[in-house]
C-alpha cells in the first residue's frame, strides 16, 4: 500500500458516498446513468470472484463494500426512485461495450482460465463503464453540481491509480500491462470533464457544456 493507492481507494469510496447522498437528498436519480451503474455492478461482481481469497482485511472489506453498494445503487435507481429515472436520456448502447470487452478479455489476458478471463473483462469494462454517463451528460448539456462532484471523485480515483502504478514500478518493479493500458484509457476519458469541472464548478458556476 502506498499513499497514491490509499488516496485513490478513498476517493473511490467518497465518489460512491457522494452518489448515494445525491440520490437520497434529492430523492431522485435524475442525471445519473443507470447503464453506467449497471456496468459498475458487473465490473465488481466479475472482478471479485476471488472474494474468498485472503489478501488483507482492507482488501476484503473494500470488495464487499463495492459489490454491495453497486447493487444497492441499482436497487435505488430501478425500484425505490424508479419514477425519477428517465431512460430516454440514457441511450448509450452498452451491448457493444460488453461484447467488445469480452472479446478483448478472451484474446488479451495473462492466463486463459475462467476466473482470469473474467478479471480481465472487468478491467476492460471498468475502463469504458463511464461512457453512458458521459454520453448522457453531453446529451443534456448540464449537470447538478453534486453529480459533477461524484464524477470528479471517480475520475480522481483513476488518476491517482496512474500515480500509484508509477510509484509501484519504481519501488517494487511491479508491472501489469493490462491494468495500465485500461487505466490510462479510462483516465483519458475524463479529460474533457475535468477541464469543464475546473473551469466552471470550481469557480462556483453551474456545470454546462460550452
Amino acid at each position: 500500500m502506498n499513499f497514491f493507492r490509499l488516496t485513490a481507494d478513498l476517493m473511490h469510496l467518497l465518489s460512491i458516498f457522494v452518489l448515494l447522498l445525491k440520490i437520497q437528498k434529492t430523492r431522485s436519480c435524475s442525471g445519473i446513468s443507470f447503464k453506467t451503474q449497471l456496468l459498475y455492478a458487473v465490473v465488481f461482481v466479475t472482478r471479485y470472484l476471488d472474494l474468498l481469497k485472503w489478501i488483507s482485511l482492507y482488501n476484503t472489506l473494500m470488495k464487499i463494500f463495492f459489490i454491495a453498494s453497486s447493487i444497492y445503487i441499482l436497487y435505488l435507481m430501478k425500484i425505490k426512485f424508479r419514477a425519477t429515472y428517465d431512460p430516454s436520456q440514457d441511450t448509450f448502447r452498452i451491448e457493444f461495450l460488453l461484447g467488445a470487452c469480452l472479446l478483448l478479455a478472451l484474446v488479451f489476458n495473462y492466463t486463459f482460465t475462467f476466473i482470469e478471463v473474467l478479471w480481465t473483462f472487468s478491467i476492460y469494462l471498468e475502463a469504458v463503464a463511464i461512457l453512458p454517463q458521459l454520453f448522457m451528460l453531453s446529451r443534456t448539456g448540464e449537470a447538478e453540481t453534486i453529480t459533477t462532484h461524484y464524477l470528479f471523485a471517480l475520475g480522481a480515483y483513476r488518476g491517482l491509480y496512474l500515480l500509484n502504478w508509477i510509484w509501484r514500478f519504481y519501488t517494487e518493479h511491479h508491472i501489469d500491462w493490462i491494468v495500465w493500458v485500461a487505466g490510462a484509457i479510462q483516465t483519458a476519458l475524463y479529460s474533457d470533464f475535468f477541464y469543464i469541472y475546473y473551469k466552471k464548478v470550481l469557480h462556483g458556476q453551474k456545470f454546462e457544456l460550452p
Partner: peptide, 10 residues
C-alpha cells in the same frame, strides 16, 4: 512472475 497471483489492487 505469474501476474494472476497478485491481483492485489481493487
Amino acid at each position: 512472475k505469474d501476474k494472476t497471483k497478485d491481483h492485489d489492487e481493487l
